[in-house]
Amino acid sequence: MRPLLLLGLTPLLAACTPSLQGQPAPDVVAQLPTPADSAHVRVVVMGDQGKGGAVQKQVAQAMQEVCAAQGCHLGVALGDNFYPAGPKQASSPLFQKLFADLYGPLKIPFLVIAGNHDESWVVGGDGADAAGAAAQVAYSKLNPQWVMPARTYRAPVGDLVEFFALDTAPLAPYLPPVRPNEFPNGAWDRAQRAWLAGALGRSTARWKLVLGHHPLFSNGKHGEAGHYDRFPLAFQRGEAARQTYLLACGKADLILSGHVHSLELFAPQTDCTGTWQLISGAAGEAGGPKFGQRPAVFDAFGQAGFAWLDITPQVITVRFYAAKEGRAMQIFEGQIKK
Rank of each mutant, 00 (worst) to 15 (best):
W188V: 12
L4V: 14
H259T: 10
H213S: 04
V112C: 12
I336V: 15
P33L: 09
G302S: 11
G281D: 02
F164T: 01
P18T: 01
G47A: 09
H73Y: 07
V178Q: 14
G104K: 05
F164D: 00
K251F: 06
A282P: 01
K338M: 07
A307H: 03
P87H: 10
G86M: 03
P26V: 14
G292A: 10
Q58R: 09
E264R: 04
G127D: 07
V45L: 12
K57A: 15
C16Y: 02
D37A: 11
L166G: 00
T317V: 14
G47Q: 09
K337V: 14
G132Q: 10
R237D: 03
T275R: 06
K107R: 13
G127N: 05
P149H: 03
T270Q: 13
F231R: 14
T17Y: 05
A300D: 05
I336R: 05
A85V: 02
L256F: 12
A62H: 00
A138D: 05
H73N: 13
A155T: 03
T10W: 15
Q96A: 13
G104W: 09
V122A: 15
V29W: 10
S19H: 14
K324F: 05
L160P: 02
Q145K: 05
A241H: 09
G47S: 12
H40V: 13
G250Q: 13
A304F: 02
R237E: 12
Y174P: 00
Q303N: 07
F99T: 00
Q335A: 14
V55C: 13
K324N: 12
A85H: 00
F163Q: 09
P295R: 08
P11W: 08
G104R: 02
P149C: 07
G250K: 12
A14K: 08
A296Q: 15
A77Y: 01
T270L: 11
Q145G: 09
V55M: 12
S140N: 08
P35E: 04
L102N: 10
G238F: 03
C67M: 00
A307Q: 02
R319T: 14
L111V: 05
F95M: 05
T312S: 11
L233K: 02
L246H: 08
L196D: 03
A134P: 01
K88D: 13
V45H: 06
C67N: 01
A36E: 15
A323K: 01
A300M: 06
R151G: 13
N185E: 15
H213Q: 15
L7Q: 10
W188E: 11
A39T: 15
L111S: 01
